[in-house]
């Protein structure tokens, strides 16, 4: 009896929040290009997102590369294809694992921090104070974060590519007794530029999504400490899901003929 109106309400509120998100993204992106600019804020976010994420990104990549070499070796040994280990490691890392795992780790670190910081500023009226000081909150708070994440995630992923491949090399050479020169040659031989590029494109998109979710949920948080808490959770969960979804879409755009 009241089911259809209830479904209608859920659907309408879904449309409303999608529209609000699209507006938020549009306004924020437009402020990336319009002066005044705040270079020191951009630099601070670049350091926060890029530099301070390196330990997490590096550790994730090295262990992933190591386990990948081990797993593919034990699998391929069953049909005498051990020679493919190097290729599998380098392709998996550059195309999929470095961007996705880096994205998820950074979502947990940066997305949560952004939502908490901006959410706290919202509930303590600091964002309102910005606008009474004739300073646009989109330009001052959101644009630098979006831009910094968009720039720095590809940098992080490039580093993760190198560290991940090196992790695979370590296991292959020191544990599985591969010949170092042959392993490296196999790594290079089948790697194409598009493999790396597709991973970096993914990273840029993921970076944007992470910052967008962190800022959006923070910006619209309400209701004190509890509201900030749920904004943080929502930022991480929605960024993670979007990363996995967009990962599929971008992979299909690059590699399906």
């Amino acid at each position: 009896m009241s089911l259809i109106p209830a479904i209608g309400r859920v659907f309408l509120s879904f449309l409303a929040s999608t529209g609000r998100l699209a507006m938020f993204a549009g306004v924020s992106v437009s402020h990336i290009f319009r002066p005044p600019f705040y270079p020191h804020l951009l630099l601070r976010q670049i350091i926060e997102i890029g530099y301070y994420s390196l330990p997490v990104v590096g550790l994730t990549a090295v262990f992933t590369g190591m386990v990948l070499a081990l797993q593919s070796y034990t699998g391929f040994a069953r049909f005498n294809a051990e020679g493919a280990v190097a290729t599998v490691v380098v392709l998996s890392i550059t195309r999929e694992l470095a961007p996705v795992l880096t994205g998820l780790m950074v979502a947990g670190r940066i997305g949560a921090a952004m939502a908490a910081e901006i959410g706290t500023m919202r509930v303590t009226e600091q964002i309102d104070a910005l606008s009474t000081l004739a300073t646009n909150p989109y330009k001052y708070l959101i644009a630098p974060r979006l831009l910094a994440a968009l720039i720095m995630l590809p940098c992080c992923v490039l580093i993760a590519d190198i560290i991940g491949v090196y992790g695979g090399y370590l296991v292959a050479v020191h544990k599985l007794d591969f010949n170092p020169a042959v392993y490296l040659k196999n790594s290079w031989q089948f790697l194409e530029l598009v493999d790396v590029i597709s991973g970096l494109v993914k990273a840029g998109v993921f970076g944007f999504l992470i910052a967008l979710m962190g800022c959006y949920h923070g910006f619209y948080s309400k209701g004190g400490a509890q509201g900030v808490g749920s904004a943080t959770t929502n930022a991480v969960v929605s960024a993670s899901i979007l990363i996995l979804g967009f990962n599929y879409l971008i992979t299909e755009a690059f590699f399906s003929q």
């Binding site: 910081e117 706290t120 303590t124 600091q126 606008s131 009474t132």
Partner: peptide, 24 residues
């Protein structure tokens, strides 16, 4: 909104109920 609002807001100053200082 936007620049037009900022231009008007340059004429004013506000003390918030909870001070709303930038804690960073």
């Amino acid at each position: 909104s936007g620049n037009a609002r900022d231009r008007v807001n340059r004429k004013l100053g506000m003390l918030f109920q909870g001070a709303a200082l930038f804690d960073s």
